[in-house]
């Protein structure tokens, strides 16, 4: 039997009169990589924040490993620690070095000893190839390096799933690759991942399933080969045509 890690059932998120997410049902199994694509403003980020327990849905249920998060009296911060989250902006703690950014959760949430936290943090930094930069402050790192530290901060906690919210969207083209490579490594190691991205190469290579969202709804779900060759819906076709407009030879 496949193990469901995270599941959203009929998730709605409404801000005032704006409906950001309109009844999305989605599930991620252990070891899977699912990629959400869709135009800006299609509700991807909001959906991911709801699934990451960073925002409470207006309606609908979030299940983490089978438990209804908001129906139970579970400690939300404990659950959040098991769901890694990588943001569009690296969002590093600016007063802490790369190493201390990764260590903070290990020390204060998982309660590891100083030595153990340091060892694990360095290991995570090594995985994202940022070990040499451990003693640098965020402002001394490039956007791509900061984002890799952000990924290290998430993986160091040994989460059951990592959610990526367009991690390369705010990076220059040449910096995107270093982040994408790290994500590709993670996917190949069998990390359970839910990724919102515009990087179609990456999506095609690592995704088990592509989820196309528009106007707060899931419009199409398909395996990557099928989705990229023959999108079923007109909206997905148009979105891809626009996205690929400037890209040749992929």
């Amino acid at each position: 039997m496949v193990a469901r890690v995270l599941e959203g059932l009929d998730v709605w998120k409404v801000y005032g009169k704006t409906v950001a997410v309109a009844g999305v049902t989605i599930g991620i199994n252990k070891g899977e990589t699912k990629v959400i694509i869709g135009p800006s403003g299609s509700g991807k980020s909001t959906l991911l924040r709801c699934l990451g327990l960073l925002e409470r849905p207006t309606k609908g249920r979030i299940l983490f490993e089978g438990t209804d998060v908001y129906a139970s009296k579970l400690d939300l911060s404990k659950l959040r620690a098991k769901i890694g989250f990588v943001f569009q902006d690296p969002s590093l703690f600016r007063h802490l070095t790369a190493l201390d950014n990764v260590k903070l959760g290990l020390r204060r949430v998982l309660g590891l000893s100083e030595d153990e936290a340091r060892r694990k943090a360095l290991e995570a930094l090594r995985l994202v190839r940022m070990e040499e930069w451990a003693d640098h402050y965020p402002a001394q790192l490039s956007g791509g390096q900061q984002q890799r530290v952000g990924i290290a901060r998430a993986i160091a906690m040994d989460p059951d799933i990592i959610i990526f919210d367009e991690p390369t969207a705010s990076l220059d083209i040449e910096l995107k690759w270093e982040v994408i490579e790290v994500m590709r490594d993670l996917a190949k190691r069998g990390t359970t991942m839910l990724v919102a991205t515009h990087e179609l190469h990456f999506a095609r290579e690592v995704a088990d399933e592509i989820i196309f969202m528009d106007h707060g709804k899931i419009v199409e779900v398909a395996p990557p080969e099928e989705f990229f060759k023959r999108p079923k819906t007109e909206r997905a076709r148009r979105f891809m045509a626009r996205l690929l407009g400037g890209v040749t030879g992929w």
Binding site: R49, G52, L54, S77, K78, L79, R80, A81, K82, I83, G84, F85, F87, S91, L92, F93, R94, L104, G105, R108, V109, G150, R153, A154, M157
Partner: peptide
């Protein structure tokens, strides 16, 4: 940063 701190379980 506050949201990032939340996400690691603080």
């Amino acid at each position: 940063q506050v949201m990032a701190a939340m996400s690691i379980g603080l």
